[in-house]
Amino acid sequence: MPNSELMPIGVFAQRSGLTSSALRFYADSGLLPPAEVDPVTGYRYYAADQLTRATTLRQLREIAMPLAAVEAVLDTEAQEAARLLDEHVAKIVGDAAAALRKAGVIKSALGADVPSLPIATLKGPVLAGVVEQVLTATAHEPGMAVLAGLHIEASHEAITFTATDRYRLSTRTLVPPEPPAQTWAGTVNGDDLRAAVAEVRRGARVRIEAVPHGVWLRIPEREDRHCRLLSEDFPDHRSMLASLGEATTRATVSKDPLLRALEEHSGERITLHVGDHGVNVRSPYDEHPGIPLSATVTGENLRIRFEMTTLYPAVSTAIGPDVMLDLRGYDQPVTIRSADRGDLTTLAMPIKFDHSA
C-alpha cells in the first residue's frame, strides 16, 4: 500500500482517540498491528479501514473489558460479540452491587458504637413479597433518586411500605405479630432491597433495624443485609391520598382474564370501557371491538385510558383472584386493590383522553 494512503501513528492516534503509546502496546499485543512498518526508520503506519477496529477497541477498554475479552469481541461475529458485552456488563453490575453491600457493612462497623433502632419483626417470605410488589412502582429518574426507593413508615400499630414513580403509587400495610416499638420513617434504596430479597425470603423472621444512613435486615442463621437510606424527601403521598374524591364508578373483575386481555394488545396504550355490561379492553386507535370481560359494575359508565406500563403492573401485583377498580373520572387516579384483601393498594394515573380517538 502506498505511504500516501497510510496514516502515521500520530495522525491515527488523533483520529481513533487512542494515544500513540497505547497503539504501540496494542500492536505489540497483536490486537491492532500497524498496516505497515518502515524497515529503515521503524515508523508505524495505519490504514483508514483500521479506524473502526481501533475505535471499538478503545470503547471496550473504556468499560474496563480485559484484553482477552476485547480480542474475543473484535474477532467474532456480531451476535456473539453482543453476548460477550452483556456478560461483561452483568459482571460489572454484580461487582458494584457487592461492593456497595460490603461498604455498608464496613461503614456500620466503623460506627459500631451507634446503637440501632428496632423497627419491626416480620416473616421473611411476607416481607420479601411486599418488597417485590411495592417496588414495581419505582423508577430510576435522573436527579430524582427518591423515586427508586421504598418508603417505610412504622407506627405503634403497623408498618407501611410505599413507592411511586409519579404515574403509579403502591402502598401496602402490615400488622406485625408484635406492634412496632418505635415510630420511624425513611426511604430505603430500592436496588439494595431487591438484592436482599432472596436472602430475606429464606428467613423465618426478619428484624428491621434503623441505623444512621441505612437499615439492617437481621436474619437469624443467615447473612444480615444492609440497605442504604436515600436522603431526598419522599413525595407527600398522604396528602394526595387524602385528597382523592369518592369513586363514581366501581368495577370488580377477575384478575387473570383482565391480565390476559391486556397481554393480547401490543400497543403502548389501552382503553377500558366500563359500563353496565362489564369491562371492555380496547386498543385506542383501531376499530376492533375489544375484549369483553364479565364484571360487577356500579356507578356511571366511563372510558379511561392508560399507558400499558402503568396499568399492567398495577393489576399484576394485586392480591387475590379478583381486583376492584375505583374510578373517579377519565382524568383522575384509579385505585386498584384486591376485592377481598385491602392491604395492597395501587393508584394508577390515566393519560389524557383524546376524545377524537
Rank of each mutant, 00 (worst) to 15 (best):
S20M: 13
F25C: 00
A27P: 00
G30C: 10
Y45Q: 09
D49E: 14
L51H: 08
L51R: 08
A54Q: 04
T55I: 14
R58Y: 00
R58P: 00
R58H: 01
E62H: 00
L67G: 10
A68G: 05
A72T: 09
A72G: 02
L74H: 05
E77G: 09
E80M: 08
E80R: 14
A81W: 02
A82K: 10
L85E: 04
L85W: 07
H88W: 12
I92W: 02
V93T: 14
A98Q: 13
A99W: 04
K102M: 13
I106W: 10
S108E: 14
L110T: 07
A112S: 15
P115D: 12
S116I: 01
L122G: 06
P125W: 06
G129N: 15
V130D: 08
V131L: 15
V134K: 09
T138C: 14
E157T: 11
E157Y: 03
F161C: 04
T162W: 01
R172T: 15
P176F: 11
P177T: 11
E178T: 15
T183P: 01
V188K: 04
E199D: 11
A204T: 11
E209L: 14
V215R: 03
E223G: 07
S231K: 12
G245R: 14
T249C: 09
S254Q: 11
D256L: 10
L262N: 03
E263C: 00
S266I: 06
R269K: 12
T271E: 10
V274R: 02
H277C: 01
G278Y: 02
E287D: 15
I291R: 11
L293K: 08
T296L: 12
V297H: 04
E300T: 12
R303E: 12
T309A: 14
A314S: 15
A314F: 03
A318E: 04
M324L: 15
D326S: 15
L327I: 13
P333F: 08
V334D: 02
D340I: 07
L344D: 03
T346C: 14
F353C: 01
A357C: 04
